[in-house]
Design a protein around this nucleic acid. Structure first.
Length: 429
DNA sequence: TCATCTCTCACATTTGAATCGA
DNA sequence: ATCGATTCAAATGTGAGAGATG
């Protein structure tokens, strides 16, 4: 399903269910009274979203066989500011990890001072560092993903109200394929983005920046592999009394398939299936929450897993290997009046906004291509601690010619400052 | 046919939560 | 109720080998 935007009519998204126990998000726009164009559809965790009308349900059932997963509706003329009673029975544990997360914050926050103007709106604001706790899982998690159209097609366009703050940042969109990896590390990436009074901080920007400089790679496996680093945000400027759903989508950021050639990525043919569009989205496991709750915690999408298994039913993000992607955070106000159920969607209307941090772009791979990325992962990821041997990992020695090894290890040691390692270790807790 | 590229799987290791007993 | 030891599931990258591709 490819997005087709017409006129100035804004796009909206609905989050709803399908018949395979995996509900979906649909990003689309109403083009005429009875016609919709779809930017994307995504499988999402059930019971997380408020719902609206069922206007085009039947049309989509016909299209998709027995998959009544699409529910789209007109946008509300206004979004109520009051909030319904709690929509879930379990709540985040806001106390368990306060200390560890606060420590991580205090270190990470040092990286948040380079507030740059976003393409949409500059923001000098730096969110106050307040005691926080990471959002720990207490909900039953049901996995989620799905197919969507390419972001370049679906989430841009005149009149759109689905705003991508950094939809086409020049330092990303204009990067030649061979320069993927942000070698121009002297160019700062925005750590804080602000739009419509909502400020989003990429809390673990320092680690992202290190990976970006080498060209971030993320492993895809059939059973799903977590991202490292993962996306961790701090939010401010939300209405404290309003319910919001946070959804992370991962959209293609290039039109090509790539290959690793000795020391750099090169375009190698057109992207696979991008004409049909494949975007994934992953709702945060605590969605929906009050704005006050989102703002009091770090929002970490550490549960997100990446896979290249297209029959995946576990709800992982399905990506193409050797393709470039970039995560995007969607902040979706939840409408009042109706409790969320798996068969009803929440409207992603004019007040929904999307934030994209260009430094989080990555290459999806099944095997690491860039040795520097491997070393960064080993040095930063606690689960890979077994491969750390102070630069004397015999396995790495085996696969590396000596001169290269000496050089890269020096670089890696330089990149992996102790404080950064410590930050990321604590980040995982 | 062959070389290269890409992917899959078993493996060793670490982490952290859960469990159990003192 | 607390603490330490143990167990186990889930996480990591490695490397061999299979399959796909040109």
């Amino acid at each position: 399903m490819r997005a087709q935007r017409r006129g100035s009519r804004p796009p909206f998204a609905s989050l709803c269910s399908c018949s395979r126990n995996l509900p979906r998000v649909v990003l689309g726009a109403k083009t005429t009274r009875n016609s919709w164009s779809f930017a994307a559809d995504v499988t999402v965790t059930p019971c997380l979203f408020d719902t609206r009308s069922t206007e085009v349900t039947h049309a989509l059932e016909e299209e998709e066989g027995n998959l009544p997963y699409v529910l789209l509706t007109d946008p509300p003329s206004s979004v109520p500011t009051s909030h319904p009673s709690r929509l879930t029975t379990e709540r985040p544990n806001f106390t368990t990890d306060t200390i560890l997360e606060s420590q991580a914050i205090s270190m990470a926050s040092n990286e948040c001072t380079s507030t740059l103007s976003s393409p949409v709106e500059g923001s000098p604001a730096k969110p106050p560092v307040t005691p926080s706790s990471i959002l720990e899982e207490t909900f039953g998690h049901s996995p989620a993903t799905s197919q969507m159209a390419p972001a370049s097609d679906s989430l841009k366009g005149p009149g759109t109200s689905l705003i991508s703050i950094s939809d086409s940042p020049p330092w990303v969109s204009t990067l030649p394929s061979s320069t993927f990896g942000c070698p121009d590390s002297g160019k700062d990436f925005p750590t804080v983005l602000t739009f419509k009074g909502v400020t989003v901080t990429l809390e673990n920007n320092s680690i992202w920046k290190q990976f970006c400089e080498c060209g971030t790679e993320m492993i895809l496996t059939k059973q799903g592999r977590r991202m490292f680093p993962y996306c961790r945000y701090r939010l401010s400027g939300l209405d404290p009394d309003r319910m919001y759903s946070l959804v992370l989508s991962i959209v293609p950021s290039g039109q090509y398939r790539y290959r690793w050639n000795t020391s750099k990525w090169e375009a190698h043919g057109p992207a696979e299936h991008q004409s049909q569009g494949l975007i994934r989205a992953f709702p945060h496991h605590y969605s929906p929450c009050l704005g006050s709750e989102w703002m009091s915690c770090l929002v970490s999408f550490y549960k997100l897993k990446l896979t290249n298994y297209f029959q995946d039913q576990e709800g992982h993000m399905i990506l193409h290997s050797m393709h470039r992607y970039i995560p995007r955070l969607h902040i979706i106000p939840v409408l009042d009046g109706e409790a969320p159920t798996p068969d009803k969607p929440v409207v992603m209307g004019p007040e929904s906004i999307t934030f994209t941090f260009p430094q989080t772009e990555f290459m999806a791979v099944t095997t690491y291509q860039n040795f520097r990325i491997t070393q960064l992962k080993i040095n930063h990821n606690p689960f890979a601690k077994g491969f750390r041997e102070d630069g004397n990992n015999p396995r790495l020695n085996r696969i590396l010619p000596l001169p290269v090894k000496m050089e890269t290890q020096t670089e890696v040691l330089k990149l992996a400052e102790p404080s950064e390692q410590q930050e990321e270790v604590m980040d995982l807790r």
